[in-house]
């Protein structure tokens, strides 16, 4: 078991490192001229500078070094918690992240919790009542672009009814993200429920005289909910990436909006940092789910111990 845990942790670290390296490669190897791009991002017209000045600026950002050396500097900095310096704002990226991560964490965690409750409730009701409208609802919810949902909510709840503020509030952004995330969760849960309800032990429970509601609560729910746990990482990932569009629409000063601004100004170190943090959260949640899963589902634990 210890070997399994250590192996799984090691695997997560390797995946995270590879994801970081891939993003670094995309950002630093792809553009036709990364230096010009970054000089432009720093607000400098490359043509207006003498060769000496260009060299000095490149030296300041470490862009005159070979790419593998730049990679090594970034990676070793990352291990010390140093994400480099923002090209447009001239401050450490870690300071920017620290300033802006609070609102995003609040938004993502609230949205994830709301989605868990709403998604499970929807799946539970849909499979219990067997109303086709309810079983189809998640597919509809997952089809609407988030910016559309956000704008619709603003128009209806802020401008028509005046219940919630159009910018800065927490309720509307959380609803926007939850529509998508709970739909995704409900789709998986409904499928899992349907499989569980056709299991022989459910038929047995019904045959010995238990009511449908009792079977649903006591026998089906736990077993149906377990497989759905594996997409917890996906749900958290969704709430994190959704923050980009949602924070932009609702003008929340979080990491999502930071990412949008960084791409607009081609602030490469900031983009790299945000992608790394998001990937780390995603990998971490998946790791925790994988480690908890055998504890919650004895059937997995047995096969895990046998390995």
């Amino acid at each position: 078991m210890t070997r399994y845990v250590l192996g799984r942790i090691g695997q997560a670290v390797v995946v995270l490192w590879a994801a970081y390296t891939l993003t670094f490669a995309i950002l630093y190897l792809l553009p036709s001229d990364p230096m010009e791009l970054q000089l432009a991002a720093a607000g400098v017209q490359p043509d207006s500078l003498s060769a000496g000045q260009v060299a000095a600026i490149k030296h300041q950002f470490g862009l005159d070094q070979p790419i593998w050396l730049q990679y090594w500097h970034h990676l070793s900095g990352l291990l010390r918690g140093d994400f480099g310096t923002s090209l447009t704002q001239q401050v450490p990226v870690s300071d920017l992240l620290a300033q802006r991560i609070g609102p995003t964490l609040l938004l993502s965690v609230s949205a994830a919790l709301v989605s868990l409750v709403a998604g499970s409730a929807l799946a539970y009701l849909a499979t219990f009542t067997r109303w086709t409208v309810l079983t189809r609802l998640p597919a509809v919810g997952a089809s609407f672009p988030q910016f559309f949902i956000a704008l619709f909510l603003i128009q209806f709840f802020s401008f028509q009814l005046g219940w919630f503020p159009a910018t800065g509030g927490l309720v509307l952004p959380v609803i926007t993200i939850s529509v998508l995330a709970s739909s995704v969760l409900a789709q998986v849960l409904i499928k899992s429920f349907e499989e569980t309800l056709s299991q022989p032990y459910v038929v047995t429970a019904r045959a010995k005289g238990l009511s449908r509601s009792a079977v649903h609560v006591r026998h089906a729910f736990r077993n149906a909910a377990l497989p759905a746990m594996t997409i917890l990482g996906v749900i958290v990932g969704l709430t994190v990436t959704s923050s980009i569009v949602v924070e932009t629409v609702f003008t929340r000063e979080g990491v999502g909006k930071l990412a949008q601004e960084a791409v607009l100004s081609q602030d490469v170190p900031v983009v790299l940092a945000v992608v790394t943090v998001a990937a780390a959260i995603f990998v971490l949640v998946n790791l925790v789910v994988d480690l908890l899963y055998p504890l919650l589902d004895p059937r997995i634990a047995v096969s895990g111990a046998a390995r």
Partner: peptide, 24 residues
């Protein structure tokens, strides 16, 4: 498949954002 796992570890929209940053 490990390479695919790595692609999957970067949430979709963020992977897209890095590519857009690089390509314009």
């Amino acid at each position: 498949m490990r390479f695919v796992d790595v692609l999957l570890a970067i949430p979709g929209l963020l992977l897209a954002l890095s590519i857009v940053t690089a390509l314009g």
